[in-house]
Write a protein that binds this DNA or RNA. Structure first.
Lengths: 361, 361
DNA sequence: CTGAAAGCGCTTACAG
DNA sequence: CTGAAAGCGCTTACAG
C-alpha cells in the first residue's frame, strides 16, 4: 500500500452527546457485504472518485493509481453496482427492445444485430414480448421506464399514443424497426412491407399464375401491409376477387397446413398461394405433400422472410429475403447516435428486401 | 387535496450564514423532472413512506390515504424508479437466465415457462446467451451480478467454478435446467440426457435396425450425454463400431444436410441415423429427399426435442419429446421458493422425456 | 397506521 | 490529476 494510510469507510458515527434529548437512531448496517467502491478505494489508498474514474475512463487517472485500483478491484472481486450507477448518473445503459414474440424466429436475428451493435457501446438490452397485444406493449414499456431505459427499439411503426407521449416526456429516444415510418420526425429502419407484398403479387402474375390466393395468420400491421400490397398487384393484373383465408390466430407451421387446406377447399381452382410468412409456407408445403398436391405443378407457394429452411426444403420455397440482422444492427446504431446526441444523416433507413425465386413458385 | 398542505420537496437550502468561511457548494439539481415518490407524497399530502407502502402492500395503509396516493400517482404519471428501489432494498426483482442461444428454438419455450412463473411473482428476467462458450457465460454472469440479480437459472449442470463461487459468496440462488445434477446440494430441473440417448438407441435396436449411425453438431455437454447413452444402448445390442459424424460446428438445418451426407458416404450401409437434435434431423430428411434416399425405407431418422415441425413434415419425424416449457416453469418455481426462503420438497426435479415414434423411424 | 432519519453505492459538480 | 460534499430516489429500521 506504499505507505498511504487507507481511508476509513465513512459512516456516520453514533456520538450520542450528553446534550441530546432524544436518543438518535443508531447507524444501521444494511450492506450485503459485497465490496463497494469505497472498499476498493481504501484498499488502493485513493478516494472513491479516483476508483470511479479509473474504472470509467482510465486516461483521467495516472498510471500508478490506475494500477493500484486495478489490483484492489481484482483482489476484492469488486463488481460495480449498476443500480447505484443508474441512480447517480441517471443513465442505465439499458435499451429496451419490444418485439412481438420470441417464438417467431424472424426477430431472433434482429436481436442478434441489436446486441452486436449495442454491446460494444456498453449497453445491455432488455427484451419485452408484446405477444402482438397493444396492452402488453403498454405494460412492457412502463416496466422498461421504471428500469430507466436510455432508449427503445420497437417493432413496427404504429405505437400507442400514451406510450409515445410518456417516452417523449422523458425524452427517451425511440427507433422503429421492420417498417418505414410515414412520420418524418420518427426514426425507423426497415423496408416497405407494402412494397414487398406488391412485388410478390407482381412476381406471381409475371410467372403466369392466373388465380393466386393468400393465407395469413396473426394479421399484425406488417402482415396487413403486405397483404394490401399483394392485393394491389393482383388488381393491377386484372384480378378482382381475392381467394384469401385470413385469421387472427397466432401463426405457426401447423396453422399453415390448416389454412392451406381451407384455402384449397374454398378455391380449388387457385394455382398459387402467397403465405404471409415462411412458417405458414412450410406448413402449407407439408400439407400439400401429405395430400398429394404437387408443388409447384398443382399449386405454387410463396413464403416471406426467407428463413433458413426455405432454401433447404424439397422443393425449396420461393420467398422474400428480409434484412433482419441488418435491421437490428442499423436500428441500434441509429438509436446510439440519437442517445449520444450525434447528428443523424437520415431519420429513416430503407434496407430493402429481395425476392428469392426458388422451386416452389 | 382536501385542505392538506402539500409538503415541500425537501432539498437542502443554501443558508450561507455569515460565519461560514468557505462558500459551500450550492445545492445542485440533478433530477430528470420525472415525478418521484416525494412528488406523489406531497400531491397526496402524505409522507413518502406512506406512498411507498401504499404501492407495495396496500393493506398497510388506510383506504383513504391509499386512494389519495392512487390519485396522485395517476395524475403525475408516476413510475417508480427501480434503480433506487434496488439500491435501497438490496433486491432487484431481477432473475438472470443463462441459455446457450436464442436461435435454438428449444430454449424459447423454456423462457416462456420461466416468464409465466416469474412474472406473477413480480420478477423480471434478463437473458444472457452464452453462445456455448464458457467465457461468455462467465462474462454474462458478471454483468448479471452488477445488475444485482436475485437469482439465476442456468442451462446445464456444469458451471465454471469461479462463477459458482461468486454466486455462493453473494448467496444468490441458482437452479440448473435441462439436466439433473449429480451434486446433491445443487438445484436442478430437467431430465436425464444420457437416458434419453440410451432409449433412442434401444428403440432403434428394437425396431430391428442393424446398423444405426449418428450425426451431431455443437457437442455441448447435453448432446454429449445423449450420444453417450446412445452408444451404450448400441453396445448392449452388440454393435461395437459407431458410424458417427461429430462436429463442434453450430447446429442448424443446413448442417443436418451436410452431416447426413458425410455420414452416408462414410457408412453407406447404415440403416438409421440418430440426429442429436431436430434441426439436424429436418436437414437430414431434406437431404435424403433431395438425394432420393427413401425415409424410412432406405434410412430411418430420429431427431430430438420434438419441435413443432417434427409431427408435420412428410414423413413425420420420430423424435423425443422434452418438457421444455415445464422445465422453465418448474425451474423458476424452485428458484422462487429458494429466493423467498421457503422449504424445498426436493432439490432436483426429473421431468422425464417421451419417445415419440413416427413415420421416419 | 404513519412518519422522520439515515442509508443503499454510486456520480455530478465543484474546488484545488 | 485528485478529492470532499451532496445528491440520485427509494426503503429499512425505528419510534410513536
Amino acid at each position: 500500500m506504499r505507505g498511504l494510510s487507507p481511508r476509513e469507510r465513512k459512516r456516520p458515527v453514533n456520538s450520542d452527546g450528553p446534550g441530546s434529548v432524544k436518543r438518535p437512531a443508531r447507524p444501521r448496517k444494511r450492506t450485503l457485504g459485497r465490496a463497494t467502491i469505497a472498499d476498493v478505494a481504501s484498499a488502493a489508498g485513493v478516494s472513491p472518485m479516483t476508483v470511479s474514474r479509473a474504472l470509467k475512463d482510465s486516461s483521467l487517472v495516472t498510471k500508478e493509481l490506475r494500477d493500484r485500483v486495478a489490483a484492489a478491484v481484482a483482489e476484492l472481486g469488486y463488481v460495480p453496482n449498476l443500480a447505484a450507477q443508474t441512480l447517480a448518473s441517471a443513465r442505465s445503459n439499458l435499451v429496451g427492445v419490444i418485439i412481438p414474440s420470441l417464438s417467431n424466429s424472424v426477430f431472433i436475428e434482429t436481436l442478434t444485430g441489436i446486441r452486436d451493435c449495442l454491446s460494444v457501446a456498453g449497453y445491455q438490452i432488455i427484451i419485452g414480448e408484446t405477444v402482438y397485444s397493444a396492452d402488453h406493449e403498454r405494460q412492457l414499456l412502463s416496466t422498461h421506464l421504471s428500469r430507466a431505459i436510455d432508449g427503445v427499439l420497437v417493432t413496427g411503426v404504429e405505437l400507442d399514443p400514451d406510450v409515445k407521449r410518456s417516452l417523449e416526456q422523458r425524452s427517451i429516444p425511440l427507433v422503429h424497426m421492420f417498417d418505414i415510418s410515414e412520420d418524418p420526425e420518427a426514426l425507423s429502419v426497415g423496408f416497405s412491407q407494402w412494397q414487398a407484398g406488391y412485388e410478390v403479387g407482381k412476381y406471381l402474375m409475371a410467372r403466369g399464375y392466373k388465380r393466386p390466393g393468400l393465407i395469413a395468420g396473426q394479421l399484425d400491421p406488417r402482415s396487413l401491409k403486405r397483404i394490401d400490397g399483394y392485393r394491389k398487384a393482383l388488381s393491377e393484373g386484372g384480378i378482382a376477387q381475392f381467394a384469401e383465408i385470413l385469421t387472427p390466430e397466432a401463426t405457426s407451421i401447423a396453422l399453415g397446413g390448416q389454412l392451406l387446406w381451407r384455402q384449397r377447399v374454398a378455391w380449388p381452382d387457385c394455382d398459387a398461394v402467397f403465405c404471409v410468412n415462411d412458417d405458414l409456407a412450410l406448413g402449407a408445403l407439408f400439407e400439400c405433400q401429405r395430400r398429394g398436391v404437387q408443388v409447384p405443378k398443382d399449386l405454387a407457394i410463396v413464403g416471406f422472410n426467407d428463413l433458413p429452411y426455405a432454401k433447404l426444403s424439397v422443393p425449396t420455397i420461393t420467398s422474400v429475403t428480409t434484412p433482419r440482422y441488418e435491421i437490428g444492427f442499423q436500428a441500434a446504431h441509429l438509436l446510439l447516435r440519437q442517445m449520444t446526441g450525434q447528428p443523424l444523416e437520415r431519420r429513416s433507413i430503407d434496407l430493402g428486401f429481395k425476392l428469392a425465386p426458388r422451386e416452389s413458385a
